[in-house]
Design a protein around this nucleic acid. Structure first.
Lengths: 148, 148
DNA sequence: GTGTTATTGTTAGCTTTGCTAACTAACTAT
DNA sequence: ATAGTTAGTTAGCAAAGCTAACAATAACAC
C-alpha cells in the first residue's frame, strides 16, 4: 500500500465517491431500459450517431470507448432493428459508414427521454446553484475522460 | 415527442450529459480491472462489507441495487476466493450473514486504489475549486440516488 | 397445533455486453 | 510484386444482470 496524505488522500477519497456514485446512478437508470425498449449501450451509440453524424465503425467504437468487435455487433443489432444503416465507402472500400435512420432518431429521443425521465425531474427540482454545480462537474469529468 | 422548454429542457440536457459522462467514466475505469484482479461489482460489494460491516444477502443486494440471485452468485465467487465468508444465522436459519475476511479487506484496499489510481491522480491535478465542485456534485447525486 | 402465507436464499437458464484471437479484404509503401 | 498496415467481421469466452421456479424456514390465522 502506498502512503497517502494531504492532497493525495483527499483526491483518493473523492475518486472513490465519484466512482461509487457513478455505479449507483447507472444501475438506477438501467432499470428503465425495459421500458425504453433499448438497452443503454445501444441507446448511447445511437446517440453518438444522431448528434455526431455518420461515423465509421472505428470512430464509433472509439467514441464509445469500446473495441471494434463489440461495436460491430451493436451496429448489426441496431441495423437489424432498422435504427441504423451500414453503407460501404466509395473511396476506401474497407470502411463502413454507419448512420442513424429516421426511426433511430425518433426512438432515440423517446428512449432517452424515458430512461432519463426520473433523473431529469430530480434535476429540475434542484436549486439553480445545484444545477450549476452538476453542470460544471460534468464538464470537468468529461475533460478528464477525454484527456485520458 | 414531449415539448420541453425553460427549466425542463435545461434539466433534460444536463441529465443527458451526466448520464453520458458516467457511462464513459465507468468504461474507462473498467479497463484496469484486469490489473486489480477483481472486477468492479465484486470490488463494490466487498467495499460494502468492509465499510458497512457484515450483512445478510438481501441487505447486500439492496445496498448494491441488485437482485438476490445476482448477489448470491457474487458472494459465492467472493467466498471461493477467500475474500468473504457465509455464516448461518442462529436465530433465523433462513438468513446468511456475509462478512469480509482479512484477505478481502486487504485486497479491497489494494484493488480499489489501483482501479482508481489514474482518476485519483487526475483529480489531484485539478484546482482546489474544481475539486470542490466535484465533491459537491457527488454529494448531490448521492442524495438523488438515495431519495429515488 | 395445523395449515396457509410470506420471506430468504439458491439453482437453472437466458440475455446483454464486453473482451481476445484469428481471419478476410483492401489500402499503402518499398 | 510483395510486405506490412488498417478496417471490419467471426468465433468463442466471461462477467454480470435478469426472471422463473424451487427449498427451507418463519410467521400468522384459526
Amino acid at each position: 500500500m502506498r502512503k497517502r496524505s494531504g492532497r493525495g488522500s483527499e483526491a483518493h477519497a473523492l475518486a472513490e465517491r465519484i466512482h461509487s456514485v457513478a455505479i449507483r446512478l447507472l444501475r438506477r437508470l438501467r432499470k428503465t431500459d425495459a421500458v425504453s425498449g433499448l438497452p443503454g449501450p445501444k441507446l448511447s451509440a445511437l446517440s453518438v450517431l444522431v448528434f455526431g453524424g455518420p461515423q465509421t465503425l472505428k470512430d464509433l467504437a472509439a467514441a464509445e470507448q469500446v473495441r471494434a468487435p463489440t461495436m460491430s455487433r451493436l451496429v448489426v443489432e441496431l441495423a437489424a432493428d432498422g435504427l441504423a444503416t451500414k453503407t460501404g465507402d466509395k473511396d476506401d472500400r474497407r470502411v463502413v459508414r454507419i448512420a442513424a435512420t429516421a426511426k433511430g432518431r425518433a426512438l432515440l429521443e423517446a428512449g432517452r427521454a424515458r430512461r432519463l425521465d426520473v433523473l431529469t425531474q430530480q434535476i429540475a427540482a434542484l436549486s439553480r446553484d445545484e444545477r450549476r454545480v452538476l453542470d460544471r462537474a460534468a464538464e470537468i469529468l468529461l475533460r478528464l475522460n477525454t484527456d485520458g
